[in-house]
Design a protein around this nucleic acid. Structure first.
Lengths: 223, 223
DNA sequence: TGATAATTTGACCGGTTGGTAAACATTACA
DNA sequence: TGTAATGTTTACCAACCGGTCAAATTATCA
């Protein structure tokens, strides 16, 4: 008897785990490159090395595949922000957050593009995740940053927009990779641009956030 | 006799201009929301308020529509960078570049998303534009920034990554709008987030770029 | 006004897409 | 080893998609 995947509540077969793994890997490859609507089940099936009905045996619809992929990847994707430590040195924490985010952009560009595609097109499938777990985590970390600023450990700034700025600048190197390469003209080169970016961004954010020691900057704010 | 659009080399009818205008407006709406592959001619036709064959009378293929739209929008999109003035005050120029880019993100989010969708998916239709006019313009302005740094007018920094950082932080508010709204929890609010972003970004970039007057920052670079 | 060119539309076509049905093959396990 | 559950495939379908065609409608201008 054919027992479709949704009915399985007990432990999963070895084959199930392997195949679902294969499928999600292929789905990541395809969805991240073409977006949800631009991807076809056949493409994913080909990348996964199996037939289309076989895919649909494990995930009953295209949407189910996408949903499973999002759920699986979201946690990993938010890890760098979770590591943000309220008890650490503020500048060091921000610096290493930037470094981790940049590292993820280099090592997991597909994951970055998966979310970028989704959000860019109005987040039709992950609205709940954005308003729920994501917002909650950002709220928590924004409070940490605000406390640091209040204690005079870093310059006063809007913590949400600081997080947005770190997200956008780092993910840019994954999401807009072809543009970066086209402009830098180093399409065949290695990962040098990531090191340059790390140097630039760490300096940009840190110099921008450290409490200024020159008194002139105090009354300079209105400009 | 049916004279398809490509054969018209002479002046265009009033109707032609109006309809092509309508179509490109609708195409911008649809392409920016779903990407090229995710958009259908029928969708565009419906938004434009005309029948599908009528659209195809003015643009013979879906690709032709997309191409025309890109060509039309790219110039406008690069205007802020073109205004970047080598003879102006460096910090003021960067500051107003940020302001202009942020203004465009607010007023023309669809144009931003059109390019974002395209680049995100590997820029299959605008590769030439990236490597040609875009790279040329960025090279030119990067040279200006490099000269400013060399003359000691701003801090030394990689001009390309500076431009990337300004692009990414400002366009983030157009491309990732739903995420920004979800995190800020002000989905029904006005444009306040753009003003907050402007304040934050101007401060971030300017404080990060101004030549430091305190000698301590000189030997601090290795950290 | 009338003829000619420009514009618009409904019907249609071949290929693709998400998904199904059922036969067939393989695994797990008593 | 036998058999029931699990896994895989071939053939197929209805809806959709990009694009064509020919007929009908409207604008242009001598």
């Amino acid at each position: 008897m054919v027992l479709p995947r949704a009915a399985r509540t007990q432990r999963r077969t070895r084959i199930q785990e392997e195949k679902e793994e294969q499928i999600l890997e292929a789905a990541l490859e395809v969805f991240s490159a073409h977006g949800f609507r631009g991807s076809t089940i056949d493409q994913i099936a080909e990348v996964a090395g199996m037939s289309k009905p076989n895919l649909l045996y494990y995930f009953r619809t295209k949407e189910a595949m996408h949903r499973a992929l999002i759920d699986r990847v979201l946690d990993t994707w938010l890890d760098p922000l979770r590591e943000f430590n309220a008890d650490g040195n503020p500048v060091a924490e921000i610096r290493s957050y930037i470094r981790r985010k940049l590292e993820m952009a280099r090592e997991f560009p597909r994951e970055s593009r998966l979310f970028a595609n989704e959000v860019l097109q109005g987040a039709p499938h992950i609205e709940d995740e954005l308003k729920g777990p994501l917002k909650a985590l950002v709220d928590e970390k924004a409070e940490v940053i605000r406390a640091w600023a209040k204690a005079g450990k870093i310059a006063k700034c809007d913590p949400y927009h600081l997080i947005f700025a770190i997200w956008s600048t780092t993910q840019h190197y994954a999401d807009f990779d072809v543009q970066v390469r086209a402009v830098l003209g180093q399409e065949n080169a290695g990962d040098g641009r990531f090191e340059d970016a790390a140097r630039f961004l760490e300096r940009l954010f840190v110099d921008g956030l450290q409490v200024s020691e020159q008194p002139s900057s105090e009354h300079d704010e209105g400009g």
